[in-house]
Design a protein around this nucleic acid. Structure first.
Lengths: 116, 116
DNA sequence: ATGTTATTCAACCCAAAGGTTAACCATGAG
DNA sequence: CTCATGGTTAACCTTTGGGTTGAATAACAT
């Protein structure tokens, strides 16, 4: 039942939805509450909430005719994991090492317009 | 010179672009190299690279007629920061705390008054 | 000079995303 | 029952995003 990374990223790659999550990070709220700060229709916010729900980033709890939304940050961990994995795998140090090797190995430096 | 969080998230919210970044995390590569694994035109990949470049997630280094691309993971840190900030602010423990309080404090939890 | 390689650019196409309004369900209040 | 409240759904519109192809640019090889 784990959520595809892409769904998670698509979900948070929108300012409105991030604001919703931030709001929920300060406690439960109804859809209307969450919608209040935005200059858009309730229907639009409802759609955003649906996207976040499909991405398992929030949970709905029906209480009578209202629905209390609460944050479910679990899927965000996969994002963090991807970032960590991508940014630390070889990359940087090896990058600079590579640059050093290139400089050292090439006797004829073409032009040094390159900026680092 | 910092990049808007939204640009960073939009940039990595695409499987092709993530694959490009993963490729670059294993070292520099030319656009053609990066394009090879994909079943799409070079022009399409070139556009993806442009998106990543605008998001400051990679750097281009012109060497003759080729362009060496290398990872620039800096902006990803802002993503991590946002995730940490969002997921740790109140939320979880308070969620469970809230649940506990409801269970413990109200033997007959009819409803919570919130008439606004 | 001519051609080849590496890459971008321009003009399109199509699908998806984000928004709107209006109609539609539920539930709680009177 | 009736009505207002809270929210979703449906139909629609417009903008954006990802893809294509074909021509353009730029550097190197011959």
């Amino acid at each position: 039942m784990s959520v595809p990374l892409n769904d998670t990223l698509l979900a948070i790659a929108d300012p409105t939805r991030r604001a919703i999550l931030e709001r929920l990070s300060r406690g439960e709220a109804r859809v209307s509450d969450v919608a209040a700060p935005f200059a858009m229709s309730l229907a639009a916010v409802s759609k955003h909430v649906a996207v976040l729900e499909r991405a398992r980033l929030l949970r709905r709890r029906r209480v009578g005719r209202e629905q209390l939304l609460s944050l479910r940050p679990g899927p965000l961990d996969d994002v963090t994991r991807w970032i960590v994995a991508t940014r630390t795998c070889w990359s940087e140090r090896l990058d600079t090492l590579d640059a050093l090797l290139h400089e050292a190995a090439s006797p004829s430096p073409r032009r040094r317009k390159e900026r680092t």
